[in-house]
Protein backbone atom coordinates (compact mmCIF):
# COMPACT_ATOMS: atom_id res chain seq x y z
CA UNK A 1 0.00 0.00 0.00
CA UNK A 2 2.80 2.34 0.95
CA UNK A 3 4.60 1.52 -2.25
CA UNK A 4 1.40 2.04 -4.21
CA UNK A 5 0.69 5.50 -2.82
CA UNK A 6 4.35 6.41 -3.15
CA UNK A 7 4.31 5.53 -6.84
CA UNK A 8 1.11 7.53 -7.28
CA UNK A 9 2.72 10.63 -5.82
CA UNK A 10 5.82 10.23 -7.97
CA UNK A 11 3.61 9.63 -10.99
CA UNK A 12 1.50 12.72 -10.45
CA UNK A 13 4.57 14.82 -9.85
CA UNK A 14 6.18 13.50 -13.05
CA UNK A 15 2.90 14.04 -14.85
CA UNK A 16 2.81 17.70 -13.87
CA UNK A 17 6.33 18.22 -15.23
CA UNK A 18 5.52 16.40 -18.44
CA UNK A 19 2.34 18.43 -18.78
CA UNK A 20 4.29 21.71 -18.74
CA UNK A 21 6.64 20.39 -21.42
CA UNK A 22 3.93 18.81 -23.53
CA UNK A 23 1.62 21.84 -23.36
CA UNK A 24 4.38 24.03 -24.76
CA UNK A 25 5.27 21.50 -27.41
CA UNK A 26 1.68 21.03 -28.53
CA UNK A 27 1.08 24.79 -28.46
CA UNK A 28 3.92 25.32 -30.93
CA UNK A 29 2.70 22.51 -33.14
CA UNK A 30 -0.93 23.55 -33.00
CA UNK A 31 -0.38 27.23 -33.66
CA UNK A 32 2.71 27.34 -35.85
CA UNK A 33 2.59 23.84 -37.33
CA UNK A 34 6.18 23.37 -36.21
CA UNK A 35 7.63 20.24 -34.61
CA UNK A 36 10.03 21.75 -32.14
CA UNK A 37 13.12 19.58 -31.90
CA UNK A 38 14.75 22.16 -29.65
CA UNK A 39 12.18 21.71 -26.89
CA UNK A 40 14.51 19.55 -24.81
CA UNK A 41 17.24 22.11 -25.40
CA UNK A 42 15.16 24.86 -23.79
CA UNK A 43 14.52 22.58 -20.81
CA UNK A 44 18.25 21.99 -20.46
CA UNK A 45 18.99 25.68 -20.93
CA UNK A 46 16.48 26.57 -18.21
CA UNK A 47 18.34 24.31 -15.82
CA UNK A 48 21.71 25.87 -16.64
CA UNK A 49 20.43 29.45 -16.42
CA UNK A 50 18.97 28.75 -13.00
CA UNK A 51 22.19 27.04 -11.92
CA UNK A 52 24.33 29.98 -13.09
CA UNK A 53 22.08 32.50 -11.39
CA UNK A 54 22.33 30.66 -8.09
CA UNK A 55 26.03 29.80 -8.16
CA UNK A 56 27.57 32.62 -10.16
CA UNK A 57 25.26 35.56 -9.48
CA UNK A 58 24.23 34.47 -6.00
CA UNK A 59 20.53 34.94 -6.68
CA UNK A 60 18.01 33.14 -4.49
CA UNK A 61 16.55 30.07 -6.18
CA UNK A 62 13.05 31.46 -6.90
CA UNK A 63 14.55 34.46 -8.71
CA UNK A 64 16.86 32.12 -10.60
CA UNK A 65 13.84 30.16 -11.78
CA UNK A 66 12.22 33.38 -12.98
CA UNK A 67 15.41 34.36 -14.76
CA UNK A 68 15.41 30.97 -16.48
CA UNK A 69 11.84 31.48 -17.66
CA UNK A 70 12.67 34.90 -19.11
CA UNK A 71 15.93 33.79 -20.70
CA UNK A 72 14.41 30.77 -22.43
CA UNK A 73 11.33 32.74 -23.39
CA UNK A 74 13.43 35.54 -24.86
CA UNK A 75 15.59 33.14 -26.83
CA UNK A 76 12.48 31.41 -28.14
CA UNK A 77 10.93 34.76 -29.11
CA UNK A 78 14.01 35.90 -31.01
CA UNK A 79 14.51 32.52 -32.68
CA UNK A 80 10.94 32.52 -33.99
CA UNK A 81 10.99 36.15 -35.03
CA UNK A 82 14.37 36.24 -36.72
CA UNK A 83 14.83 32.72 -38.13
CA UNK A 84 11.80 30.46 -37.99
CA UNK A 85 9.45 33.09 -39.39
CA UNK A 86 11.29 33.08 -42.72
CA UNK A 87 10.42 29.48 -43.53
CA UNK A 88 7.32 29.10 -41.39
CA UNK A 89 5.21 27.41 -44.07
CA UNK A 90 7.70 24.68 -44.95
CA UNK A 91 7.46 21.99 -42.28
CA UNK A 92 10.71 20.29 -43.24
CA UNK A 93 12.65 23.56 -43.04
CA UNK A 94 11.17 24.55 -39.67
CA UNK A 95 12.02 21.13 -38.32
CA UNK A 96 15.60 21.41 -39.53
CA UNK A 97 15.92 24.87 -37.99
CA UNK A 98 14.78 23.73 -34.56
CA UNK A 99 17.11 20.75 -34.84
CA UNK A 100 19.99 23.08 -35.73
CA UNK A 101 19.16 25.35 -32.80
CA UNK A 102 19.19 22.35 -30.46
CA UNK A 103 22.62 21.28 -31.67
CA UNK A 104 23.95 24.81 -31.22
CA UNK A 105 22.45 25.31 -27.77
CA UNK A 106 23.65 21.99 -26.40
CA UNK A 107 27.13 22.52 -27.81
CA UNK A 108 27.29 26.02 -26.37
CA UNK A 109 26.32 24.69 -22.95
CA UNK A 110 28.90 21.95 -23.29
CA UNK A 111 31.57 24.54 -24.15
CA UNK A 112 30.68 26.82 -21.27
CA UNK A 113 29.90 24.36 -18.51
CA UNK A 114 31.71 21.19 -19.60
CA UNK A 115 30.28 17.69 -19.85
CA UNK A 116 30.23 16.99 -16.10
CA UNK A 117 26.97 17.47 -14.21
CA UNK A 118 27.28 20.46 -11.90
CA UNK A 119 26.32 20.21 -8.24
CA UNK A 120 22.89 21.85 -8.18
CA UNK A 121 20.80 20.59 -5.26
CA UNK A 122 17.21 21.62 -4.72
CA UNK A 123 17.10 24.29 -2.00
CA UNK A 124 14.26 22.63 -0.09
CA UNK A 125 14.79 19.26 1.53
CA UNK A 126 12.96 17.10 4.01
CA UNK A 127 9.68 15.32 3.68
CA UNK A 128 6.06 15.51 4.62
CA UNK A 129 4.59 12.48 6.37
CA UNK A 130 1.01 11.45 6.98
CA UNK A 131 0.72 7.91 8.27
CA UNK A 132 2.11 5.57 5.63
CA UNK A 133 2.36 8.35 3.09
CA UNK A 134 5.70 10.02 2.66
CA UNK A 135 6.28 12.84 0.23
CA UNK A 136 9.61 14.58 -0.33
CA UNK A 137 9.05 18.33 0.04
CA UNK A 138 10.92 19.07 -3.18
CA UNK A 139 8.36 17.04 -5.12
CA UNK A 140 5.56 18.98 -3.45
CA UNK A 141 7.13 22.32 -4.35
CA UNK A 142 7.64 21.27 -7.96
CA UNK A 143 4.11 19.92 -8.15
CA UNK A 144 2.67 23.14 -6.74
CA UNK A 145 4.60 25.37 -9.14
CA UNK A 146 3.73 23.17 -12.11
CA UNK A 147 0.05 23.17 -11.24
CA UNK A 148 0.10 26.97 -10.87
CA UNK A 149 1.87 27.33 -14.21
CA UNK A 150 -0.63 25.04 -15.92
CA UNK A 151 -3.51 27.00 -14.38
CA UNK A 152 -1.91 30.24 -15.47
CA UNK A 153 -1.48 28.96 -19.01
CA UNK A 154 -5.09 27.85 -19.13
CA UNK A 155 -6.25 31.22 -17.85
CA UNK A 156 -4.17 32.96 -20.49
CA UNK A 157 -5.39 30.74 -23.30
CA UNK A 158 -9.04 30.52 -22.34
CA UNK A 159 -9.95 33.84 -20.83
CA UNK A 160 -7.91 36.50 -22.58
CA UNK A 161 -8.13 38.03 -26.00
CA UNK A 162 -4.56 36.94 -26.72
CA UNK A 163 -5.33 33.32 -25.86
CA UNK A 164 -8.43 33.38 -28.00
CA UNK A 165 -6.39 34.70 -30.88
CA UNK A 166 -3.75 32.00 -30.44
CA UNK A 167 -6.36 29.25 -30.37
CA UNK A 168 -8.08 30.71 -33.42
CA UNK A 169 -4.76 30.74 -35.30
CA UNK A 170 -4.27 27.11 -34.37
CA UNK A 171 -7.72 26.17 -35.67
CA UNK A 172 -7.64 28.00 -39.00
CA UNK A 173 -4.79 30.34 -39.78
CA UNK A 174 -6.28 31.95 -42.89
CA UNK A 175 -9.62 32.80 -41.34
CA UNK A 176 -7.94 34.01 -38.16
CA UNK A 177 -5.81 36.36 -40.25
CA UNK A 178 -8.92 37.59 -42.01
CA UNK A 179 -10.33 38.44 -38.54
CA UNK A 180 -7.28 40.59 -37.89
CA UNK A 181 -4.97 38.28 -35.95
CA UNK A 182 -1.41 38.98 -36.94
CA UNK A 183 0.75 35.85 -37.08
CA UNK A 184 3.90 37.95 -37.19
CA UNK A 185 2.99 39.32 -33.79
CA UNK A 186 1.46 36.23 -32.21
CA UNK A 187 3.73 33.45 -33.48
CA UNK A 188 6.85 34.68 -31.65
CA UNK A 189 4.74 35.18 -28.53
CA UNK A 190 3.39 31.64 -28.72
CA UNK A 191 6.85 30.25 -29.27
CA UNK A 192 8.24 32.27 -26.36
CA UNK A 193 5.42 31.10 -24.12
CA UNK A 194 6.18 27.47 -24.94
CA UNK A 195 9.94 27.72 -24.59
CA UNK A 196 9.55 29.71 -21.38
CA UNK A 197 7.48 26.84 -19.97
CA UNK A 198 10.18 24.36 -21.01
CA UNK A 199 12.76 26.60 -19.32
CA UNK A 200 10.62 26.77 -16.18
CA UNK A 201 10.36 22.99 -16.07
CA UNK A 202 14.10 22.66 -16.55
CA UNK A 203 14.88 25.15 -13.79
CA UNK A 204 12.52 23.35 -11.42
CA UNK A 205 13.29 19.75 -12.21
CA UNK A 206 16.98 19.52 -13.06
CA UNK A 207 18.07 20.10 -9.43
CA UNK A 208 16.04 17.01 -8.48
CA UNK A 209 16.77 14.76 -11.45
CA UNK A 210 20.04 15.76 -13.08
CA UNK A 211 21.65 18.51 -15.09
CA UNK A 212 23.97 17.83 -18.00
CA UNK A 213 24.29 19.09 -21.59
CA UNK A 214 22.59 15.94 -22.91
CA UNK A 215 19.62 16.07 -20.55
CA UNK A 216 17.43 17.45 -23.34
CA UNK A 217 17.30 14.23 -25.38
CA UNK A 218 15.05 12.17 -23.09
CA UNK A 219 12.93 15.27 -22.48
CA UNK A 220 12.30 15.63 -26.20
CA UNK A 221 11.43 11.95 -26.45
CA UNK A 222 8.97 12.24 -23.56
CA UNK A 223 7.42 15.36 -25.05
CA UNK A 224 6.90 13.53 -28.34
CA UNK A 225 5.41 10.58 -26.57
CA UNK A 226 3.02 12.67 -24.53
CA UNK A 227 1.93 14.91 -27.33
CA UNK A 228 1.28 12.08 -29.78
CA UNK A 229 -0.64 10.19 -27.12
CA UNK A 230 -2.80 13.24 -26.45
CA UNK A 231 -3.19 14.14 -30.11
CA UNK A 232 -0.86 16.64 -31.79
CA UNK A 233 -2.08 20.15 -31.18
CA UNK A 234 -4.64 19.26 -28.51
CA UNK A 235 -4.11 21.08 -25.20
CA UNK A 236 -6.46 18.98 -23.09
CA UNK A 237 -5.09 15.83 -24.65
CA UNK A 238 -1.52 16.82 -23.86
CA UNK A 239 -2.31 17.55 -20.22
CA UNK A 240 -4.20 14.28 -19.78
CA UNK A 241 -1.57 12.22 -21.61
CA UNK A 242 1.18 13.79 -19.50
CA UNK A 243 -0.35 12.41 -16.33
CA UNK A 244 -0.95 9.02 -17.98
CA UNK A 245 2.70 8.88 -19.03
CA UNK A 246 3.93 10.04 -15.62
CA UNK A 247 1.83 7.54 -13.70
CA UNK A 248 2.58 4.62 -16.04
CA UNK A 249 6.26 5.42 -15.79
CA UNK A 250 6.18 5.60 -12.00
CA UNK A 251 4.27 2.33 -11.55
CA UNK A 252 6.21 0.30 -14.08
CA UNK A 253 9.52 1.44 -12.61
CA UNK A 254 8.33 0.54 -9.10
CA UNK A 255 6.80 -2.82 -10.01
CA UNK A 256 8.74 -3.99 -13.07
CA UNK A 257 11.86 -1.87 -13.03
CA UNK A 258 13.93 -0.77 -15.99
CA UNK A 259 12.54 0.26 -19.30
CA UNK A 260 9.45 -1.92 -19.65
CA UNK A 261 7.22 1.09 -19.06
CA UNK A 262 8.98 3.16 -21.67
CA UNK A 263 8.74 0.34 -24.19
CA UNK A 264 5.05 -0.15 -23.50
CA UNK A 265 4.42 3.58 -23.91
CA UNK A 266 6.44 3.82 -27.10
CA UNK A 267 4.67 0.88 -28.67
CA UNK A 268 1.32 2.29 -27.58
CA UNK A 269 2.28 5.55 -29.24
CA UNK A 270 3.32 3.75 -32.42
CA UNK A 271 -0.02 1.97 -32.57
CA UNK A 272 -1.86 5.23 -31.94
CA UNK A 273 0.12 7.03 -34.62
CA UNK A 274 -0.70 4.40 -37.17
CA UNK A 275 -4.34 3.75 -36.37
CA UNK A 276 -5.52 6.92 -34.71
CA UNK A 277 -3.13 9.72 -35.59
CA UNK A 278 -5.36 12.26 -33.90
CA UNK A 279 -4.51 10.85 -30.46
CA UNK A 280 -6.63 10.17 -27.40
CA UNK A 281 -8.58 13.42 -27.38
CA UNK A 282 -7.47 14.41 -30.83
CA UNK A 283 -9.22 16.21 -33.60
CA UNK A 284 -8.46 16.71 -37.24
CA UNK A 285 -5.72 19.22 -37.71
CA UNK A 286 -4.66 21.00 -40.81
CA UNK A 287 -2.17 19.44 -43.18
CA UNK A 288 1.24 19.42 -41.62
Amino acid sequence: MEQFSQAMIIGVSLGAQYALLALGFTLIFGILGVVNFSHGGFYMLGGYVAYSCVYHLGLPYPLAVLAAVFATGALGYLFELVLLERVIDDHLSTLMLTLGLYLIVSTAVLLIFGPVSPEFPFPVSGAWRAGPIYVPLENLVVLAVCVCAIAGLYALLFSTDLGRGLRALADDRDVAMAQGMRPKLLFPLAFALATGLAGLTGALVTPILSLSPSVGDPVLATSFLTVILGGLGSLGGAALAAFVVGIVEAYTSVYFGGSVGALVLFILVLVILVFRPTGLLGREIRGA
Binding site: F29, G33, V35, H91, L92, L95, A221, F224, L225, I228, L232, G258, S259, V260, A262, L263, F266, I267, V269, L270, L273, V274, P277, G287, A288
Partner: peptide, 22 residues
Amino acid sequence: RGTYFVLVTYVLSEILQLILFM
Protein backbone atom coordinates in the same frame (compact mmCIF):
# COMPACT_ATOMS: atom_id res chain seq x y z
CA ARG B 1 1.49 12.77 -43.61
CA GLY B 2 5.00 14.18 -43.40
CA THR B 3 5.04 15.36 -39.79
CA TYR B 4 3.59 12.14 -38.46
CA PHE B 5 6.10 10.16 -40.47
CA VAL B 6 8.96 12.07 -38.84
CA LEU B 7 7.54 11.34 -35.40
CA VAL B 8 6.99 7.65 -36.19
CA THR B 9 10.57 7.22 -37.31
CA TYR B 10 11.79 8.93 -34.16
CA VAL B 11 9.65 6.64 -32.03
CA LEU B 12 10.92 3.61 -33.99
CA SER B 13 14.51 4.49 -33.15
CA GLU B 14 13.67 4.78 -29.47
CA ILE B 15 11.77 1.50 -29.48
CA LEU B 16 14.65 -0.34 -31.11
CA GLN B 17 17.08 0.95 -28.50
CA LEU B 18 14.81 -0.31 -25.74
CA ILE B 19 14.41 -3.67 -27.47
CA LEU B 20 18.19 -4.04 -27.75
CA PHE B 21 18.52 -3.51 -24.02
CA MET B 22 15.70 -5.87 -23.19
